[in-house]
């Protein structure tokens, strides 16, 4: 067996030249490419041809070659099939991608359980915060501010624990679904300037912004009696009624008159007086969201808002 003839591969080959010669002795080495390289090159050509056939490729007249591959996605409830393009692929991914599926499943889970159960489940609360933040930015932030801090005098602060219309998840859900219309009549015509001053003084004493005085006693008479009639909405104790959306005047939160910002008693009184005289009209309108958000989204937003500051 040892005498077997060695094959071609074992003979060392001398370096070949292409046979061309320039300037007498200038020659070119021929280092041949391996055959597999050539086949790989042909394979890439074949790949390119198939690619051109399937995907958008060459400009063609006023348009381009669209390719045979298609993408199907839904618009509303309709299935749409188009030529393959990255925008359609993105839409499809947003509908059917893994994240979209997981989000949808979670949404359905939240839709099924009641608020009490959600409140006990940190995972659902975290999901509501994460999705709620986006929905809030789209729908609510224009008025209530990006963080829900609101604007005093216009849009209520959603990060505190004071709720005009009730702070339970159910109440918040109701507020979002149907909207709210806060209203306070103007007393500028009913009460004379002295009475206005007295009522304002009394209101300030409710939250210890002003000391009790004869003026405040007179104000209380007006507040709790038929003279002013404030109690009808705000209650005898001034704590408001959530069914009417009337403000609690005994807490430290001011939603219309910016009392905490004022330094002197006179300024505070003036701010309160202005609200009593002019009322709150056409500035406390919360639109209904039932046509813009799905019931599930509204439910999720109720959870989000409940967590934001201090739900009840």
């Amino acid at each position: 067996m040892m005498n077997e003839k060695t094959t071609k591969q074992q003979k060392s080959t001398a370096v070949q030249t292409t046979g061309h010669a320039w300037d007498g002795d200038l020659q070119e080495f021929n280092n041949p490419l391996p055959r597999w390289w050539l086949w790989s090159f042909y394979a890439t050509v074949v790949f390119a041809l198939i690619y051109w056939l399937l995907y958008p490729s060459w400009p063609w007249r006023d348009s381009w070659l669209h390719g045979l591959k298609t993408v199907t996605f839904t618009v509303g409830k309709e299935k749409v099939t188009t030529d393959w393009n990255t925008r359609a692929v993105l839409i499809q991914e947003l509908e059917e991608g893994r994240s979209a599926t997981v989000q949808r499943e979670f949404m359905e889970k939240i839709a099924k359980v009641d608020f009490g159960e959600i409140q006990k489940n940190p995972e659902m609360l975290a999901f509501a915060r994460s999705v709620g933040k986006g929905l809030f930015g789209t729908n609510c932030a224009a008025c209530h501010g990006r963080g829900g801090q609101g604007v005093v005098g216009l849009y209520p602060n959603l990060t505190d624990d004071d709720w005009l219309w009730g702070g339970s998840m159910e109440k918040i859900q109701e507020t979002l679904t149907n909207g709210r219309n806060g209203f306070m009549p103007a007393f500028g015509e009913t009460l004379n300037p002295q009475q206005l001053d007295d009522v304002a003084t009394y209101v300030l004493t409710l939250s210890a912004e002003a000391p009790q005085s004869e003026a405040s006693d007179r104000g209380r008479e007006l507040f709790q009696g038929y003279g002013g009639g404030c109690y009808a909405c705000h209650g005898k104790d001034g704590k408001g009624q959530q069914s009417l959306g009337s403000a609690n005047l005994t807490d430290r939160i001011w939603t219309i008159a910016n009392v905490p910002e004022k330094q002197t008693l006179e300024d505070k009184k003036a701010a309160v007086k202005q609200v009593i005289a002019n009322g709150v009209q056409n500035r406390r309108v919360m639109p209904a969201w039932k046509d813009r958000m799905s019931p599930n989204e509204i439910k999720l937003m109720a959870v989000y808002l409940h967590q934001l500051g201090g739900g009840q």
């Binding site: 915060r129 501010g145 801090q149 624990d161 609690n248 430290r252 939160i253 201090g310």
Partner: peptide, 20 residues
């Protein structure tokens, strides 16, 4: 810390800060 708003005044006058 949740920075918008940095703090909120509560109905009893206390201040609340929120943290994720």
């Amino acid at each position: 810390q949740i920075r918008q708003p940095l703090y909120a005044t509560l109905s009893d006058g206390r201040i609340q800060n929120s943290y994720e």
